[in-house]
Nucleic acid binder design. Structure first.
Lengths: 407, 407
DNA sequence: CATCTTATGTAAGATTTTTTACATAATATT
DNA sequence: AATATTATGTAAAAAATCTTACATAAGATG
């Protein structure tokens, strides 16, 4: 039975909530350390958060020699988010709790030619349906986060430059959703979101990560010192269009010759397989042929690994990561792809840069971009700067009499 | 005449001092904003800092429509630092004030073969001399900061991996100086320090910088989101050993074939000039020949620019900087060098990444590494985490009666 | 020069936070 | 089961900080 909520204390509890939600602290002792507040103050505020259900004690404890430390977590049902991943053929939408985990989801067919206007209207309708479902069990909507398969200027939330989504350049996506739902809206490139997902979910201890997505196209995302690194225009990580001149340099989708993508991306391998009489158009077709053990497909995938390895070794020399994660559809080609990357990186880079470098396959087959989108949103909504607005909204809910118990 | 110093208040004034020293705030209004404290508290603490001479009001004011805003700055004479840049032939040592500006300096001849043991003893002797001079006018020694021409693991302050300094690998540099001088000691790679210098002194508004040093060797440093980016082992920015395979790939100092450095660094151009009958050994020799308008030297420098441009364009694709600064001895070759870099970058990179990209020559001919070393030290000594220790030392000085006046 | 505007200082009381000192809780160890 | 150990809670006094309200400062403007 929840204790009564001291609204005045709750209002100041944002810093505590932020520390718990962002993973910076997950026990009372860590809160003391991280917040710099006294135990009395932390206890007081934490109690307010516990009483109103924003935070809960987990079943988990840490052995300490004496009384074990009780772990804390944000109550997964204290709110929900709407997220979506716009792919080249489908849009995957979901309402997620604060774990983050999917509450309800939905997939829409998508034609890249349909333009932002009608697409966003359609998405908003689906979001409204998902929200009405999620609301029943998961308190207020905290925000909306979108994944797009294009370069995005994250600060402005806009597609920048020509891309696979014609007509989306500079379109005001945030405005549309913000006007309708009245919550913060985030837009980010899918590769960056997959990178965030890998970092937060699978490798939280690795502070310098290069995530390479090899699918129909090739792109990469970076975690630098624990934060996603976007560069000046949000165009960082563009290893797909590093060029190697050669007499037979193939023409790339970008209009230049000899890009990594034109040599080793899903569409390039499909092109080469088609030239050899196979039926292949997408990255998935390529992987199907590899899984059928077609020698030509395996050979081309291995060669692609070495080509990608050239670009990755450049990236290793420049950013010196401690971990490289290879994901995307072609990553299902496993060692056939990875061995070439490893070969080139260990051959080309200085021992100093490779001696503690791991190169691994991404484990996840699910749609990691929507989870990345969720983490991105959570980190920002629960950031010290934004938490105040969130607490205000929560206090309005709490101040309705039915939430208050007598002491 | 200084007011009396309230020691209790001074003890809490660290956050204020940190904001002023790191440049985060330089007026009372900015201090209010940045610290989140009330005007009363800020006034009280600032007065303590002013009274004890750590901070001063500058002559500068900002017009505001009403009473102008008075600017604040750390008193340049409130302390001094010892810095040194170890080059391949000389060691440049200096005592610097908090501007930072040189108070006294000294240069020692240096033989890379002499090893760390005797070199550090020699440096310590010179530091002691410089310190006794600087002490007369500039209160306490705040720290020591060193620049080395090798990869450095900054966290541990050690040279990592084989380098141009045989015997220095893993040598405990910090320990030597800390034992003798009892202050924080920092060790960093020279290119990173030159990068910090350019950022802090010349381009404080550019948050994503790639600094390329082209001298006897080739290296680069990065400012990412306003902070120096070191990578996992401090090996980031190693564009000198990006490789381009070709039939005539030259052998590099690192033992591999086709590195950028083996094609375009000072020593490589000198090698090629020697093969053509010129007398050239160092980057300086190369520049002398260029300045004498020798066509072969100019031709080779232009070619080097294009080669370096290939590596730089890879870096641009990967990190998407907003500014590229070209420095080092060969940068004195000006447009002969720069045009090739520009040509390749604009040819190879996506318009999105280049449309707001500037590529400029470094303006400074002085030894920028020692200034970078000074900024690095200042930022850390005055960081919120470290400031407490500094204040403690200062309080000890202040608590001597002669510093205290009656109210 | 009078007036407007913004910057800055200060006293006093209200509020928040910390410190201190003591009490209770939950587990491992003996 | 008793004991040791670390986690956690709480009351009361002390200290720090904030709010409020008023006063002064310094330049711009007319």
């Amino acid at each position: 039975m929840p204790r009564s909520v001291d609204l005045a204390v709750l209002e100041n509890a944002g810093r505590i909530l932020s520390l718990i939600a962002t993973g910076a602290a997950s026990s009372r002792a860590e809160l003391l350390q991280a917040s710099g507040l006294s135990r009395v103050t932390v206890t007081q505020r934490l109690n307010a958060l516990l009483a109103c259900g924003l935070v809960r004690e987990t079943e988990q404890t840490l052995p300490s020699g004496g009384r074990p430390t009780r772990m804390l977590a944000v109550n997964a049902a204290a709110g929900f988010m709407l997220v979506a991943n716009i792919g080249e053929t489908h849009i995957h939408l979901a309402a997620m709790d604060l774990t983050p985990a999917v509450i309800v989801e939905r997939t829409l067919p998508f034609d890249v030619e349909s333009g932002p206007e009608s697409t966003l209207v359609q998405m908003a309708e689906s979001f409204a349906l998902l929200a009405s479902e999620a609301e029943k069990s998961h308190a207020p909507l905290l925000g909306i986060s979108l994944s797009l398969p294009t370069p995005v200027d994250f600060k402005r939330g806009r597609v920048v430059g020509p891309s696979v989504l014609p007509g989306w350049d500079e379109f005001d996506i945030i405005g549309r959703f913000h006007d309708r739902f009245g919550v913060p809206v985030y837009v980010e490139n899918d590769v960056n979101l997959m990178t965030i997902y890998e970092y937060r979910r699978n490798f939280p201890a690795a502070d310098d990560i290069l995530f390479v997505k090899i699918g129909t196209g090739i792109g990469s995302g970076m975690i630098a010192g624990g934060r996603i690194f976007r560069g000046a225009q949000g165009a960082a990580g563009d290893i797909g269009h590093i060029q190697f001149p050669s007499p037979d340099a193939p023409l790339c989708r970008c209009g230049k010759f000899g890009c990594v993508e034109a040599r080793a991306a899903g569409w390039a391998i499909a092109r080469d397989l088609s030239a050899r009489g196979f039926v292949a158009e997408t990255a998935r077709d390529v992987i199907d042929l590899v899984e059928q053990q077609k020698p030509e497909a395996i050979m081309l995938l291995r060669a692609a690994g070495r080509t990608i390895g050239e670009a990755v070794s450049d990236a290793v020399s420049i950013i010196n990561p401690s971990l490289i994660i290879v994901g995307g559809t072609l990553a299902r080609g496993g060692e056939f792809l990875l061995s070439g990357i490893r070969e080139l990186v260990y051959q080309r880079c200085l021992p100093l840069a490779t001696r503690e470098l791991s190169i691994v396959l991404s484990g996840s087959r699910e749609d990691s971009a929507i989870f990345g989108a969720a983490y991105l949103l959570l980190d920002d909504v629960f950031s010290p700067a934004r938490i105040e607005a969130l607490m205000q909204r929560f206090l309005q809910l709490k101040s309705e009499p039915r939430y208050l118990d007598a002491g």
